[in-house]
């Protein structure tokens, strides 16, 4: 790496890139995701109602919603939405708005199974999020159990800012989420690939979470 790359991240936000996200940001992101899920559920409901109206407009009455079915459907949709987002993109829409990314312990995007488990865990046990307040590593219960992390990453696509340097070299062969790996407190001027890689490993492997013991 030469450090000659041009990053789209604002200067004031660059030191935080790769650091674990705190509670406030994650709550805002989750709220946005909840709104998105609500919109999706509402759209599905309206779609079904419209379909029913088209089938029999004369005898149409607004369907009386079954709370349990609606709740189950909503939770299922939320789980599917989050699982697909974390698996395919590494982030949901709320994460995207707040500049967050969900990664595994090595900084890579989650696999489908782990994404699904984490989504279900988050949907059915949302209170686990608050463990990140007391966790020195800012890890929620879901993160602790599934060995994941939520990090600041304002770059839209994984590795977009380091895909090509002025020397035409590939940035780092650390996987598709190379630039979204959690990073330690690296001074801004210290851009050596080896140094950064070392910080990441130490940050992830040598910083035990009290809850894991």
């Amino acid at each position: 790496m030469t450090g000659a790359e041009i990053s789209p991240v604002p200067r004031e936000a660059r030191p935080y890139q790769g650091h674990s996200a705190g509670l406030v940001t994650r709550i805002v992101a989750n709220t946005i995701d909840a709104l998105v899920v609500g919109v999706i559920v509402g759209a599905i409901y309206l779609g079904l109602v419209s379909f029913k109206f088209l089938l029999d407009p004369l005898s149409f009455v607004w369907p009386s919603g079954n709370f349990l079915v609606s709740l189950t459907t909503t939770l299922f949709i939320a789980t599917a939405y989050l699982a697909l987002g974390w698996w395919l993109l590494g982030r949901s829409y709320g994460d995207h708005v707040m500049g967050l990314r969900v990664v595994d312990r090595r900084g890579r995007r989650l696999g489908p199974l782990r994404a699904l488990l984490r989504a279900a865990f988050c949907v059915f046990f949302p209170i686990g999020l608050f463990w990140c307040v007391v966790s020195p590593e800012r890890r929620s219960v879901q993160d602790v159990v599934l060995w994941t992390r939520v990090v600041y990453d304002w770059v839209a696509r994984p590795g977009a800012s380091q895909r090509k340097t002025l020397l035409g070299e590939a940035p780092m062969a650390l996987g598709p989420a190379a630039t979204s790996e959690p990073r330690g407190p690296v001074p801004e001027h210290e851009t050596d690939a080896h140094t950064r890689s070392r910080y990441r490993r130490e940050d992830l492997e040598e910083s035990p979470d009290p809850s894991e013991r």
Binding site: G22, T25, V97, M98, A156
Partner: peptide, 25 residues
């Protein structure tokens, strides 16, 4: 780079919300 910046930080509002979240964290 332009795509990245315009896609992830289209507006100063998003940038401000993100920085506010980080500071609050």
């Amino acid at each position: 780079i332009i795509r990245d910046s315009s896609g992830s930080m289209a507006s100063e509002t998003v940038r401000g919300v993100r920085m506010t979240g980080i500071n609050a964290d």
